[in-house]
Each structure stands twice: as structure tokens, then as C-alpha cells.
């Protein structure tokens, strides 16, 4: 199981990671971040393959994947 970490301070809510996740495993959070946007969050960590598509599309380098 890969571990996707999304930096809430840096996320700008552009949704590029969300539409390109082949597992549809990302969504916008329902609570605002400190910077005033709804940041991307992982829906089910167990469902992530670690494919890296979210990382590849993120314009703000807020995603890191371990494992």
C-alpha cells in the first residue's frame, strides 16, 4: 500500500490530481485549509496503487508518495 501525503498549506485546489487519479481516489476536502481553499485529500489510502499520476500533474508540488 502506497502512502500519499498532500500538503494542505500548499494545495491550491486546482483538481488536476483528482481528475487524473485512475482510481478516482482523491477528492476535495469539505473543510477549508488555512489558506482558504478546499484542498485535495485521499479518499481511501488502501485503494491507492502508488502510480504517481497525482504527483505528476500537481503544479504546486504538494504531493509526496511513499512506498
Amino acid at each position: 500500500m502506497a502512502k500519499v501525503k498532500i500538503n494542505r498549506q500548499r494545495c491550491k485546489s486546482c483538481q488536476l490530481c483528482i481528475v487524473w487519479c485512475p482510481r478516482k481516489n482523491l477528492k476535495l476536502d469539505e473543510t477549508l485549509s488555512e489558506t482558504g481553499v478546499f484542498p485535495a485529500v485521499v479518499i481511501d489510502p488502501a485503494n491507492c496503487t502508488g502510480c504517481g499520476m497525482c504527483f505528476v500533474m500537481c503544479p504546486d508540488a504538494c504531493i509526496e508518495i511513499e512506498g
Binding site: 500548499r10 483538481q15 488536476l16 500533474m57 500537481c58 503544479p59
Partner: peptide, 23 residues
Amino acid sequence: NYSRPQALTDVVTHYCPGCGHGI
């Protein structure tokens, strides 16, 4: 290697959301 590259400084850019410059 899906981690933040070292040659990228650790700051928030001024780019608009979804701007290609960031990628």
C-alpha cells in the same frame, strides 16, 4: 521518486491554481 525535488525551493509559488508553470 515521488518526493519534492531538492532543486525546488520550499516556498508557495505565486502562480494561479492549475498553472502549467508550476508543473
